[in-house]
Design a protein around this nucleic acid. Sequence first.
DNA 1: TAAAGACTGAACCGATCGGTACAGAATGGA
DNA 2: TCCATTCTGTACCGATCGGTTCAGTCTTTA
Lengths: 185, 185
Amino acid sequence: MARRISERADLLPVLGEIFRDYGFEAASLSVIGERTGLGKGSLYHFFPGGKEEMAKAVLDEIGSWFENEVFRPLREDGDAAAAIEAMLVAVDGYFRSGRRICLVGALALADSRERFAAQIAGYFAAWQDALAGALARSGQADPDGLAEEILALIQGGLVLARARDEAVIFTRLLARLRLRLQPAG
Amino acid sequence: MARRISERADLLPVLGEIFRDYGFEAASLSVIGERTGLGKGSLYHFFPGGKEEMAKAVLDEIGSWFENEVFRPLREDGDAAAAIEAMLVAVDGYFRSGRRICLVGALALADSRERFAAQIAGYFAAWQDALAGALARSGQADPDGLAEEILALIQGGLVLARARDEAVIFTRLLARLRLRLQPAG
DNA sequence: TAAAGACTGAACCGATCGGTACAGAATGGA
DNA sequence: TCCATTCTGTACCGATCGGTTCAGTCTTTA
């Protein structure tokens, strides 16, 4: 054996930002090489499946992060309202208060969506299920509908913030959401 | 002179669907040629600026459609609540009840966003302004915040519907929105 | 009907695409 | 120390990219 035990894992955050910046199609191997500092040889050593394997690995990592930091806490017993507030904090942090887009949502709108359809659908389904459970425990009426609405607000907020180049739009939407959740939470 | 007076205008809807399906980068001139039935020579005759001019023309057409069918009715005096309801009907129709994505929103998330930044930002700003005015006239509190929220719901609903391949998500979100607007409208 | 201008198809351009091949450098275990 | 293995840089592949060029066809107007 030689060299690193897990340099591949270290690449995933960089790859994620590249796909966020360029999208899947426009993220060329040359720009990936530049920003990772790796030649094609190294990239294909770590990801024999090429760009598609890179994107899938990134989506897996994102899914794991949300599972650990967002979904599972929502599912745990305990103060449901506090768990939902923790979710909002985590989401605000992850999306850099509106300055960072959701790669999963962006891929869902792109033509490459079919390649990653299962991962994309699974991400949102898991999120909505976990959130609906917490909303139900916190006494909200129509938890499924409300969870769907909250996810749409978050995704739409990221679109609007990026479209108008005003990150504060995302923060404002989260603030309004907190107010709506307050009375019943 | 010869030939058509406005074949170029007839191309715009087709080009719009192509950009929806593929995104800007992945919409190659060859696929544009296939689906329009035109060779590169014809395409560059109508759009000397190439793909970028095509996309800008499509965005202009979308902007005009929304201006006439959505924004202006919202601004007109009269029954504000009815105008808002008319907007929801128009939006549901335009986006095919969730089966069609918003090209403006999709471009906002893509790497080509800077090329169309002005048109993208202008589209959402005009929409939000017109909607906030109608909401104010209908007696809603915080019309600006609510308008922002409604736009986010629409955009996020399109993302979710596409991501989970369930158009009904979009319809459900619009239905919930109608309920929320009812009491004060 | 003839000239003018709108329109078209095909060949072509250099650049870049994703991906492959492989020799050799770097590294750790024996 | 030496070998097995991991890792890397470079050169290269065919295909396709967006864009250009232009001879020639079509249609309208005069």
